[in-house]
Amino acid sequence: MECMEQKSEESMPAKLPVFHNAAVKDVKWSQQGHFLLSCGYDCTSRLIDVEKGLETQVFRQDQIVGVIKLHPDDSNLFLSEGSKGQIKLCDARTGKVVHDYNQNLGLILDVEFTMNGKQFISSSDVSQSNASENAIIVWDVSREVPLSNQVYVEAYTCPCVSRHQFDSIFVSQSNGNYVVIFTTTPPYRLNKYKQYEGHVVSGFPIKCNFSLDGKKLASGSSDCSIYIYDYQL
């Protein structure tokens, strides 16, 4: 991994020591910017002190870890998900798993906390099980139970979920070549009258996310383009 200090266009990347034994799948910054959380094909999640260049914690699993997400209010907690459909909430202070979330899911594609951090949304590959109602599930963080698995019932997987910074909604990238909108409050309703389309997903893990001011939604596309949508229209 490399870290780039944004002082000038000529800044050179600072290389961190190699801690993973296989390819890295996901990397997240801590809220304070002092640590990196990474995961990968070596079935681990690793917490790295960027300033010291030291690995401070290792979380080992029996699955390839493809997605990690830090808790919005407590940066010591993070979700870790992987190839066997297992979702775990881990504590960086103790190095232990706090909660396990099991629903016999397929490969976990993405995860996102709600604004208050009391629920999270998971997206999984249900193409092998034909259980489209499990494509997107809203979970209760503390009780380890799904609150709703009837959020999205179309016959498409969703490689990305992203929460709006200010409004009580989240969006999901669909392999149907559109981005769909849901509420983050019960009953987690699908917006049937508005979606963002024009880009192409074509089965690739295409991501989407909101701008920092929440006014724009950006999506990648399999035609090698980036599409910018006006969220407020």
Rank of each mutant, 00 (worst) to 15 (best):
L190E: 11
L105V: 08
S225H: 03
V180R: 12
V98N: 06
G33M: 07
N209D: 03
H71N: 09
Q31L: 02
D140Y: 13
K207M: 05
T44I: 10
E133P: 03
V97R: 09
G66A: 04
G220A: 06
L37H: 01
S129L: 09
F78C: 10
Q6L: 10
K25V: 00
S129M: 09
F182R: 14
P17G: 12
P17C: 15
V111W: 00
D74Y: 04
C90N: 11
S132R: 11
T183S: 06
C224Y: 07
L105W: 01
C208P: 06
G66T: 13
V98W: 12
K25Y: 06
L105P: 05
N130W: 11
I48D: 10
F170Y: 11
Y101R: 00
A155C: 13
N191M: 08
T44W: 04
D91H: 05
D213V: 13
V97F: 01
I87A: 09
F210H: 04
T185I: 15
D167P: 00
D49Q: 12
S83C: 07
G220Q: 08
L36N: 01
E81Q: 14
Q173F: 03
S80A: 06
Y196T: 03
Q128P: 01
I228F: 08
M1H: 15
Q232A: 09
M115L: 09
T56E: 05
E2T: 03
K215Y: 06
D140W: 12
V24H: 05
L36T: 00
A92T: 13
S142V: 04
R163C: 02
D167N: 12
E133N: 13
Y188W: 06
K52E: 11
D26G: 09
V18G: 05
W29Y: 10
L105E: 03
F210C: 08
A23E: 14
L105M: 10
S45A: 09
S222E: 05
T184C: 12
C208F: 11
K7A: 04
S174D: 13
P17W: 08
S83Y: 11
F19V: 04
